[in-house]
């Protein structure tokens, strides 16, 4: 079995060094879909978290509980739900989204939105409410106060982004069901791995896994550096 690990390591290196275009294509597609999903989830999740942290209404705890549970949402459920929605027989079928990279992004957005929202909510709640009130008394508008709160919570928000990216890039259910694993079009790193496993090409599957890890590592390293620099200037 150890020879399999060595084989995979060598194969992963070969893949990257030889730079075969289809391997890079798979890597870029995965990155593109997940990054877009992260951006979309942040655009919706951060304002949602800010509103939830300030608003006091009946059923607020209920909303939080539901969002918390949705963090455990299985990818297959998201896939199935959206499949029914965007499939040709579904209400949004005429858009022709199923089996496109956009469908993968859409699915991953739904998948990571609860995670982003809850992590942001936790980040904002940890802050002293004085920040908000200070900003408001200094004459900030509601939106300016929100921006001030977000700026204070930026490190935690960055961590939330990393976690969301991790969940998105590592998931296979949504990509398989909504993307359809079409070679050269919607084949992502995880669906490629699942396929090579199904074919019994373990070395190739594991090699792709190593490439995935390496990609995540590099991306996290960049974010980490960014965070360090912000800390220094803060």
């Amino acid at each position: 079995m150890d020879s399999l690990l060595l084989d995979s390591l060598a194969s992963a290196l070969l893949m990257l060094v030889q730079g075969e275009s289809h391997v890079w294509g798979i890597i870029f597609l995965s990155l593109r879909c997940t990054l877009f999903a992260c951006v979309a989830a942040c655009i919706m999740g951060i304002p949602l978290a800010l509103s939830l942290s300030q608003a006091r209404f009946r059923g607020r705890q209920g909303v939080i509980l539901v969002l918390n549970s949705l963090q455990a949402l299985p990818t297959v459920v998201v896939g199935l739900f959206l499949y029914i929605l965007i499939g040709s027989q579904g209400p949004l079928g005429s858009l022709g989204l199923l089996y496109t990279p956009t469908a993968i992004t859409l699915g991953q957005t739904v998948l990571i939105l609860p995670l982003v929202t809850m992590l942001c909510l936790a980040a904002v709640n940890r802050l002293d409410t004085k920040y908000r009130y200070a900003a408001l008394t200094l004459g900030a508008t509601e939106w300016q106060a929100r921006v001030a709160v977000m700026r204070e919570a930026r490190f935690a928000l960055m961590a939330a982004l990393c976690a969301a990216f991790g969940r998105g890039i590592a998931e296979v259910g949504v990509s398989m069901m909504l993307g359809g694993n079409i070679k050269g079009f919607t084949r992502t790193m995880t669906t490629a791995m699942a396929l090579e496993y199904d074919k019994g090409e373990f070395a190739l599957a594991l090699a792709l896994g190593l490439v995935l890890l390496l990609t995540s590592f590099l991306l996290n390293a960049i974010l980490h550096m960014f965070q360090r620099r912000m800390e220094q200037t803060a």
Partner: peptide
């Protein structure tokens, strides 16, 4: 790829063109 420490190849064959979708 490498198999048993030796170089090996995984070959994939398919008709060429966008009309042919290989979905695995």
């Amino acid at each position: 790829i490498m198999k048993g420490g030796k170089p090996a190849q995984v070959i994939f064959e398919a008709p060429k063109g966008e009309w042919y979708m290989s979905i695995g």
